[in-house]
């Protein structure tokens, strides 16, 4: 059973997400803030983390960086789910560290259904990286690839959902995709990594 860690300071959000996750066949873990999340990661290894942004005293972005810095959690997929509308700066700066950026309110049942696919894709990416690492590929290129893979996916999802947003034009998606495609071919990854599923 895949485990999902919900990090949100709102008790009602934790409660309702827990209900939906358990209905969707996940084991749910909860943390009321960034510090508690990091503490929990010392003993637990969830398969995916749902992270709120506007929290005190440690906000979601600080928590995200800490998750990425801590080796046991550095590869766990993170989804930001928040009431704060992202800016292009947010996406460009943090989009490469997350799997998705979701703005509340959302039909959580639908979102939860996508977690299995995200978890599976992340595992596949891990396997592919392990396979490629056996060759003599430049680690910098691998790092850039994984960052761009996430960034392009996040930017695509947001662009699709927020069609009228003024920031959409300020993310050079075409340029990013071209670079991603180039790296993809150069590193010889499976094309499945580039496929985008509905509801992701």
């Amino acid at each position: 059973m895949d485990a999902v860690l919900i990090v949100d300071d709102e008790p009602a959000i934790r409660e309702i997400f827990t209900v939906y996750l358990e209905m969707g066949g996940y084991k749910s873990l909860t943390a009321t803030g960034g510090m508690e999340c990091l503490e929990l990661l010392k003993t637990q290894k969830p398969d995916i983390i749902l992270l709120d942004l506007m929290m005190e005293p440690m906000d979601g972005l600080e928590t995200l960086l800490a998750i990425r810095h801590y080796p046991p959690s550095s590869q766990i997929p993170v989804i930001i789910i928040t009431g704060k509308q992202p800016t292009p700066e947010d996406i460009l700066q943090y989009g490469g560290l997350i799997e998705n950026f979701i703005v509340k309110p959302v039909d959580f049942k639908m979102i939860a259904e996508s977690f299995h696919r995200i978890i599976e894709k992340n595992r596949e990416l891990g396997r592919e990286i392990d396979r490629i690492k056996n060759g003599e590929q430049d680690p910098e290129l691998l790092s850039e690839y994984t960052r761009l893979l996430r960034l392009v996916r996040v930017a695509h999802n947001l662009k699709k959902r927020l069609k009228d947003r003024q920031w959409a034009d300020r993310i050079p998606l075409k340029k990013l995709e071209e670079r991603l495609q180039w790296l993809h071919k150069k590193l010889g990854f499976t094309d499945r990594l580039l496929q985008r599923d509905e509801g992701e």
Binding site: L65, R68, H69, S74, Q75, P88, E89, L92, Q93, Y94, G95, G96, L97, L125, G126, I129, K133, P139, E140, L142, S143, E144, T146, R147, R150, L151, R170, I171, P172, K175, L176, R179
Partner: peptide, 14 residues
């Protein structure tokens, strides 16, 4: 706006 080709430094998986 930050340079998208540089991004946050901790994004690498490998």
């Amino acid at each position: 706006v930050p340079d998208p080709m540089s991004g946050a430094k901790d994004g690498g998986r490998s």
